[in-house]
Design a protein around this nucleic acid. Structure first.
Length: 224
DNA sequence: CCAGACGTTGTT
DNA sequence: GTCTGG
DNA sequence: CCAGACGTTGTT
DNA sequence: GTCTGG
């Protein structure tokens, strides 16, 4: 799955790598959590340009009465995304890319009391995009909330020893297809596969280094 | 027909 | 909103 | 994902 | 142990 990730690149690089209309405003982060605001790249249907927008991580279906459901919909299984009521509308009409430069999976070692976080990145890719969906939810008082979810797939052989599943990382060559509002759903589903194992980089120590390099306090939630 | 669910993950 | 179960 | 909380009663 | 909140 994918329950935490990092995004530390400059807005300028992000704009370049995702062909954004303009530079997004965001602060580099090394511990992005569910229910926080995350950056999502969408295709603006008005002008055909790519925009980066903020979404609350945890998709709330438009029909939900209680928005608390979003906290559990931080991931969507690629295998069932086109049929599940919570996701199929978003899959048809509201696809996006969530930029990241790494993500965490927790390894549960038998005999060890605590799970160990492993930081996972892609070789030679300073930033990449998670295949994602977004929704707009309207509350009883009429206020709107834009939310998103990250699509998961079976772990590749590099990640499998740590965890059974992993987020879908779309190679840059697939970005345009994924964001195309007229794309054929059946073809889109073929894009949702595990990233090639050869490109995977794992680290047990980088997380602490990342925090230090940004002068951020060590985060008890992850590393103690 | 209406009522109620609608999701993921890990763990057992 | 739309499907499933009763 | 992890961290942190984890309650009852009667009344409207 | 399990749910909620971030």
């Amino acid at each position: 799955m994918c329950g935490r990730f990092t995004l530390r690149v400059s807005p300028a690089l992000l704009a370049e790598m995702f062909a954004l209309h303009r530079k997004p405003e965001f602060v580099p982060q090394t511990n992005i959590c569910p229910t926080q605001l995350v950056l999502g790249v969408v295709l603006n249907q008005e002008n055909g340009l790519r925009d980066a927008r903020l979404f609350r991580w945890g998709l709330i279906p438009h029909w939900a009465k209680d928005p608390v459901i979003g906290a559990s919909l931080i991931n969507a299984r690629s295998e069932t995304i086109s049929t599940k009521p919570a996701f199929r509308a978003a899959f048809q009409r509201r696809r996006c890319l969530i930029p990241a430069d790494g993500f965490y999976e927790w390894r549960n070692t038998p005999g060890q009391k605590k799970k160990q976080p492993i930081w996972i990145a892609i070789r030679n890719q300073p930033v990449f995009g998670f295949a994602s969906l977004w929704e707009t939810w309207t509350s009883a008082d009429g206020s709107e909330l834009n939310t998103c979810t990250i699509i998961t797939t079976q772990a590749n052989s590099a990640v499998a020893p740590i965890h059974q599943r992993m987020p879908v990382i779309l190679p840059e060559a697939f970005h345009e297809h994924w964001l195309d509002p007229l794309a054929d759903p059946a073809e889109l589903l073929t894009l949702l596969r595990p990233f090639p194992s050869e490109g995977i980089v794992l680290s047990t120590t980088v997380a602490d280094e990342l925090l230090a390099s940004h002068g951020l306090p060590r985060q008890r939630t992850l590393f103690d």
